[in-house]
Design a protein around this nucleic acid. Structure first.
Lengths: 200, 200
DNA sequence: GTCAAAACCGAACGTTCGTGCTAAAATGGT
DNA sequence: ACCATTTTAGCACGAACGTTCGGTTTTGAC
């Protein structure tokens, strides 16, 4: 790997950490440069603008998310087990790998009223993520784990809401029950839409 | 009302609008001064620091929230009707009165990793708001609308998650189904915890 | 070892940030 | 109408912002 690429990697790693803690907008070139131990201009030259830096950071986060959450879950059997695994991996990702909270949640809230490349990109990435969950739900239906009449999009909404709710309950309010709430709610959602194979 | 107070009112009104659109942190003295048509220093003298300005803005939002959402719902009968009314009023507040999204959601996400007075205040206000919902839920139990065994705190979590989920689905992703999802989910939550008076 | 390319640095740019001063203007009770 | 108080503006400050530029160091292919 060339020197430039591994420096970029170092920068993005540190940038993601800062973004996770303080948000995508508070990410400053100077502060980031200081935290990786290089000059402002040296760092800047890797990305030609702050906007592209922000986009790259989100890409980096998305790549990490896919690698940590989506891809490993594929090994589990299609349907509820895989979906459940995604939840567990997301919890782990959200709690352990991301020191300061899920960067997507911050980015979404920060940029929902700020038109531009960053907003568009964040929107695209988040839609892709929700799509991954919806696909896992769709497979759960096809596998016969969930009711064939299930509204996949609506189920995705409920799953997603639960994730965001947990994130805020756990992060800001620091409530210990958050995790139990999350798991219980997930189970209830799945149970409510379970397939009634024998019309019990 | 003295001149100073109504100027403060004007400032806070505009500040809340900006906060709703761009977040509490992006709220700058200069920009705010320009938007209300007065000088930076003239505006600044009303609040002795930016921190207190931010706190005042959140107080202003909380007061508006109470007046628009909590207080009017008291007129509805205790229990599910009142809770449902709170949801409707919150939707209205979130969609119409707040041009750029619920300011609390932004503030929470922005300040969850930023220790200080602002964070503490936002946390306090949000806890109070969740408390209001939990009280309405508690009343629903006492009125016999919800199962006596219901975990009020857990129900509050589900209601709150639904609100946040709707907010993001509707705001960032601009999904039209968001509102239907929200209402459907709320009904399901209530239904799942309904009192079984006759053990049907 | 040579040399062009890539990487990096230091300084400076024009702005904007929050925050002090001081003085002028508006207000409102008497 | 006077005058103390409140409110507002003007100006300046140090710091941080994103960005540009000229020059130095480092890299890696030949």
């Amino acid at each position: 790997m060339s020197k430039g690429l591994e420096t970029k990697e170092t920068i993005l790693k540190s940038a993601l950490e800062l973004t996770s803690k303080f948000g995508l907008e508070s990410l400053s070139i100077g502060g980031l440069a200081k935290s990786v131990g290089m000059s402002k201009s040296g760092l800047f030259s890797h990305f030609k603008s702050k906007e592209t830096l922000q986009v790259r950071v989100m890409d980096y986060a998305a790549e990490k998310f896919t690698r940590r959450v989506i891809k490993p879950a594929i090994k589990d059997p299609r349907g509820i087990p895989r979906l459940r695994k995604m939840m567990d991996l997301w919890l782990e990702w959200s709690e352990n790998y991301m020191v300061g909270g899920c960067p997507f949640v911050s980015a979404i809230v920060e940029y929902d009223d700020r038109p531009g490349k960053v907003r568009d990109h964040v929107l695209h990435l988040q839609s892709k993520m929700i799509g991954s969950f919806e696909r896992a739900i769709q497979l759960s239906v096809e596998e016969g784990h969930l009711d064939a009449e299930s509204d996949v999009q609506y189920l995705g909404y409920k799953i997603y809401s639960n994730m965001i709710g947990y994130h805020i309950y756990s992060r800001l309010l620091g409530r210990q029950e958050a995790r139990d709430n999350f798991n219980k709610h997930f189970d209830e959602i799945v149970f409510a839409h379970r397939a009634n194979l024998e019309d019990l």
